[in-house]
Design a protein around this nucleic acid. Structure first.
Lengths: 72, 72
DNA sequence: TTGTGACTATTAGTCCGTT
DNA sequence: CAACGGACTAATAGTCACA
């Protein structure tokens, strides 16, 4: 899977990890204080979040930020 | 070096890689079409760039985006 | 060559409801 | 529970004159 855009990479990783941990978007929204609708936009690759937002999501998912940017 | 903020992590990695490749901020600015002053702000941890901006910088530096987010 | 402050234009991010 | 849309506000993208 070469040269995938950073947005799809991030969205896939976030969704995968969130599901692995059995968390709902609403739960992550609560933990991060980011709206569910926005998280949805991130997970569907429609949003271009800042690195601080990605950091908050990573924390809420209990993983290091670098996990979110791993190629898939 | 535990739990360093994503901003310092990103700024350090970008600056380190850029210097390893012997590039000036202006050269990277030209390649990314991002202004030198903005890059400076990113490298000094004062900006909170979006993931698309980080992707452009990574490309200009010839590394995968994940490199930029590696802990240091 | 890199950093700063100040600024405007654009986008990130919120909040509402609805599917 | 997740996605979509619109309307809105806060924050970032991007520029400049200068140190």
């Amino acid at each position: 899977m070469p040269r995938m855009s950073v947005q799809s990479r991030v969205s896939r990783n976030i969704q995968r990890i969130r599901r692995e941990k059995d968390l709902s978007q609403e739960e992550v929204a609560h933990r991060t204080d980011i709206h569910q609708t926005y998280l949805s936009g991130v997970e569907t690759g429609k949003r271009n979040p800042s690195i601080l937002v990605v950091e908050r999501i990573a924390k809420a998912l209990g993983v290091d930020v670098s996990e979110i940017f791993k190629p898939n």
